[in-house]
Amino acid sequence: MELLVASAVGILTAAGIYLILRRRSFPVILGLSLLTYAVNVFLFATGRLVTGAPPILNKYEEVAYTDPLPQALVLTAIVISFGMTAVVVMIALGAYLSSRDDGTAMPVEADGAEEDA
């Protein structure tokens, strides 16, 4: 099980980074989403993997629980990453509509560095 989770994190990270290194905004957004999954699972897994022991207290008998803290962190992380994705999508869309170009590189200008001299 540990191997499965770890390898999934690795593959998601690698795929995310590969897509972030593309030259167009849409693949970059896809890559960010994949990376978000990887990071969330990573954070969640720092509480170690436990099955069948959700952190819902049982008032009547003593049972084992998994670590609730990473779960709380990841829960807000998921919601916040939605906000982040939405902003990035908006920026990408606005940039594309304004310039009709969805490249992520700044357009090359001739000798832009000399302006300030």
């Binding site: 770890a6 593959i11 990270t13 690698a14 990573f42 720092t46």
Partner: peptide, 8 residues
Amino acid sequence: GLGAGGLI
């Protein structure tokens, strides 16, 4: 990816 997977 190997780094992240290895770490976790």
